[in-house]
């Protein structure tokens, strides 16, 4: 049964006695206990969860990074991932951007009455497989059920803790004039994949989301002694919003080179068709890293060692200029402004 198999994991237990989530599954009684016993605990089998305690007791002996995020996405399953992979990788990546290796995470799920239990199982298996990929462990969780029509199937919230491995602080405050900006790969796949799946746009070749854990290349950069000034994963709002946010916080100007920014042909084509700017399209497995100019030559090959950052490219520099100004030199050599996405991204009319 493919439903129960994700990346080689097989759920050995029989289907539970109902096929859909019922309000009683959130009631704290037997049904809820059975749901946890039959679906959640077998998939995330570990000591902490077996203790069936109110929380996890963790042994922390070093500075840690701590992050939380919520996931709402329609459709729940899309080419290249699902809400479960997003929820785990999102938290792993947020910790990586703090210069930390993800160790533990919690999951809170809000389920809608009527949600298929098979889908819940599939999402939980995706989460387990994503967690295994980076070695992060689910240590505590919560489940609630809302009435039919009051949710979008499932909402997931994850919180993560990770040990900081960066030897010096990483953040916008360390960005200096002359720093070089590297993007870890081509941009725009996740946003277009989800939009195409949601709106049934039916592109000839489906575009797969770039959803992936970023900890490997980030930790490799930090461990190789490269002077990493700032890290930021590209999520909603895309490359543009991430870079503008850093320019504003750091109080610097940034100049990007349009030609240097890798955009896959199918993303370019979809953006042309829909009137979207790839710089504003969401990503879930890409980041920008600001490094000291003397370290660029070393940083790019480190990134190229990992498939997830195999197309890393130098895309711009930090320059002297007004705080928060980001411009991009276009194909004709004229600079244009780059701003954060304003409002929701809407397709044009003609």
């Amino acid at each position: 049964m493919t439903e129960n198999t994700v990346a080689g994991l097989v759920c050995p237990l029989p289907e539970s006695d109902t096929e859909t989530i019922q309000l009683a599954h959130g009631g704290g009684g037997r049904m809820m206990d059975r749901l946890l016993q039959n679906i959640i605990r077998p998939i995330f089998d570990n000591e902490q969860l077996q203790r069936r305690h109110d929380g996890a007791a963790l042994d922390v002996d070093a500075p840690v990074a701590f992050t939380t995020d919520s996931y709402v996405v329609r459709p729940l399953f899309f080419p290249g991932g699902d809400i479960g992979t997003l929820a785990v990788n999102g938290t792993v990546n947020d910790l990586a951007m703090c210069g930390a290796r993800a160790q533990w995470f919690s999951v809170a799920m809000i389920l809608e009455e009527g949600f298929p239990i098979a889908s819940l199982r599939r999402i939980a298996l995706s989460m387990r497989s994503a967690a295994d990929e980076t070695g992060v462990q689910l240590v505590t969780g919560d489940t609630k059920v809302v009435e039919r029509g009051k949710g979008d199937g499932i909402y997931i919230s994850t919180t993560g803790v990770g040990r900081i491995v960066a030897r010096q602080p990483v953040g916008p405050e360390r960005v200096r004039q002359g720093d070089v900006i590297i993007v870890s790969g081509d941009i725009g796949r996740h946003g277009i994949a989800v939009m195409a799946a949601r709106e049934k746009l039916g592109f000839e070749t489906p575009i797969a989301s770039d959803c992936a854990p970023l900890s490997e290349p980030v930790l490799a950069l930090l461990n190789s002694g490269i002077n990493v000034r700032c890290l930021r994963d590209l999520t909603r709002g895309g490359l543009a919003s991430a870079v503008v946010e850093i320019a504003e916080t750091a109080g610097v100007s940034i100049v990007l080179q349009e030609k240097a920014v890798p955009v896959p042909d199918d993303v370019t084509a979809a953006c042309e068709l829909l009137g979207l700017d790839p710089f504003h399209v969401a990503n879930e497995g890409r980041f920008v890293v600001f490094v000291a100019p003397e370290d660029v030559e070393r940083a790019v090959p480190v990134l190229h060692r990992y498939p997830v950052s195999g197309n890393a490219a130098v895309i711009g520099v930090v320059e002297d200029g007004p705080a928060g100004r980001v411009s991009c030199v276009g194909s004709l050599g004229v600079a244009r402004s780059i701003d954060m996405l304003s409002g929701e991204q809407l397709p044009r009319i003609c």
């Binding site: 009137g275 100004r325 244009r336 701003d339």
Partner: peptide, 17 residues
């Protein structure tokens, strides 16, 4: 998104600044 003012705002903020 196709309006002229939106185009100037989007692509020429740095000149306005």
């Amino acid at each position: 998104s196709e309006g002229a003012c939106a185009a100037y705002y989007r692509y020429r903020i740095h000149q306005r600044q």
